[in-house]
Every structure is written in C-alpha cells, then in structure tokens.
Design a protein around this nucleic acid. Structure first.
Length: 271
DNA sequence: ACTTCGACCTGTTGGC
DNA sequence: TGCCAACAGGTCGAAG
C-alpha cells in the first residue's frame, strides 16, 4: 500500500505520537529485508530522542540526535502503532519501543522494504543523492518538467516513474495521471510541448494531494486497529480496470507492459 | 551515459 | 479441491 500519499498519511499519523519521545528498545525478529538490518541498530538507537519525523519520496525519515533512521515499506510493508504489548504475528519483523510505551511495529510479507541507519546527513546518503524533486513542492512544475523532458526519449509513463525526474509516483498514480492528462503512456516525453508539461505537473499534484486527503480521513486515528486505506479505490479511473469501459468514451481499456509494469489506458482518449 | 533486465520475497488469484 | 503460473503498490544494481 505504500504509494507517496499513504507514506505521507502514515507520517502525519505517527508524528504526533512519536516526535520528541525516546527510543527505548528495538527488537529485530527478521533482519533480512531488501538489505539486512544493521545488527547494531538497537544499540545505536537506544536513548536517542526522535526529533522529527519527515518524508522524502516514499522514505520515512526519523531524524535523531546522531543521525537518521530510514524506513521504506517496499511493496507490501506496513507500520502499526501499538498501545500495548501484543504477540507478534507472521511477518511482524521489527518492533521499535518508545519511552511513552508505544510500539511501532514493522510488518512486511514480501520483505522488499528497508530499515537503515544513516549517521551522515541524509542528503549525502547514496539512496537520496540522485532523487528528483518532491511532486508537491514548487520546484516540481511545468518548466522543470519541460526542461527534463527535452533530455529524454522515454515513454511518458516511464518518465513519470523515474525517481530521478520526480519522486513518489508509482505505477498506480502514473496510470491515473496520464489518463487525466489524456496522454498516451507510450508517448515519447520529448514530444510534449510546454503547455502539456505544465498540465502534467498540475494534474500530478492534484491527484496526489487528493489521495493524501482521502488517506488522511481513513488513517487519521493511527493505532493498531487502524482502518484499511481504501482511499483511492473509488477514485481510480484506469488502474485495475482492464477490459472495463473508459469513463470518458466508453471504449474498452487496454493494458500493456512497460518496463515490466502493467499499464492500463484508453487507446482513444490518451494520445 | 543511457536503457533494460534480473533480483529480492510471499501471498493471492484465476485457469485447468 | 489441488496444482501451477502469473501477478502484485518498489527500486537497486548489474548487464547490455
């Protein structure tokens, strides 16, 4: 479930409960995620104060006194904030206990996620070095997109999903953004004019912002019994709608594979 | 310097 | 019902 809007929703939900509290204990049951969790992480974190909970793309950043705890949820990761001790179930790989007796529990069946420690400034961390701008910030705009588009022949969908161009746009939102801008996912990005780039940036912001608001309503009371984030389901226009009628023209939506990811689009509306 | 592809994992779904 | 293949929201890093 971890698209940018959900990661942001999680961040907001956790912030009030965890900021300014102290890491008391870290329990690692399964260290083998995308990269192995540093065995020293529990001792590194112990007694540090969580100063601030931030986000970069789909990474959650727990800013501490001596560095940053980085958590990525991969494809299947989730975080739960427990009020009280609870026996771990399958795939509950890590517990992080705080001084206010709350436990942050990391769950990830596919283990594509990551839990890393960076004692350097996070900006210089190799993972963050080549990341493009945040889609919701001002430096992501039509001018910027147009400038980058001149240097690339990638199909528009792959361009949008390239985190060196812009972070946080995954498969679902790339599909949705292109449908709403009526652009073919196959369209070489350097064939867009300035106006189309402007529209692309605007639509991307609008769709992500809307999803954050929806996520916020379903996840606002963030605790172990938090509701399932069904926030986007009813708003999806193309993703997961292969063979169903296009909401604009009624023709059947098609799929194709781009860079090993499924693309769903309307071959009539999206040029 | 570019793009493509394999790899990391488990769970769910749909066809036979 | 069982078995098996295909597929799933991500993205790094090797290979071409």
């Amino acid at each position: 479930m971890p698209e940018l809007p959900e990661v942001e929703t999680i961040r907001k939900g956790l912030q009030g409960h965890l900021e300014n509290h102290i890491f008391k204990k870290v329990i690692i049951r399964q260290a083998r995620l995308r990269w192995p969790i540093d065995a020293n992480l529990p001792s590194t974190l112990k007694n540090q104060t969580l100063l601030s909970l931030q986000r970069r793309g789909k990474y959650l950043l727990f800013l501490c006194e001596k560095g940053t705890l980085i958590i990525h949820l991969g494809m299947s990761g989730s975080l739960h904030l427990l009020n009280q001790a609870k026996l771990p179930s399958k795939h509950d790989h890590v517990d992080i206990l705080f001084s206010n007796d709350r436990t942050l529990r990391y769950h990830d069946p596919r283990r594509f996620g990551a839990i890393l420690w960076s004692s350097e400034n996070t900006i210089s961390h190799p993972l963050f070095k080549n990341l493009g701008p945040e889609p919701l910030k001002k430096d992501f705009n039509g001018n910027y997109l147009y400038g980058m588009a001149q240097k690339s022949k990638l199909p528009s969908k792959q361009f949008l999903m390239d985190n060196r161009i812009v972070v946080g746009i995954g498969n679902i939102y790339a599909n949705e953004i292109l449908f709403q801008t009526k652009l073919s996912p196959l369209r070489p990005i350097n064939t867009l004019d300035k106006k189309q780039c402007e529209q692309l940036a605007q639509v991307a912001k609008k769709i992500l912002q809307k999803a954050i608001i929806k996520g916020g309503t379903t996840l606002k009371d963030f605790c172990d019994s938090e509701g399932k984030p069904g926030y986007f389901q009813q708003d999806l226009k193309v993703y997961g709608r292969k063979d169903l009628p296009c909401y604009e023209c009624g023709n059947t939506l098609h799929t194709l594979k781009q860079a090993q990811r499924t693309t769903t689009y309307c071959i009539y509306c999206q040029i």
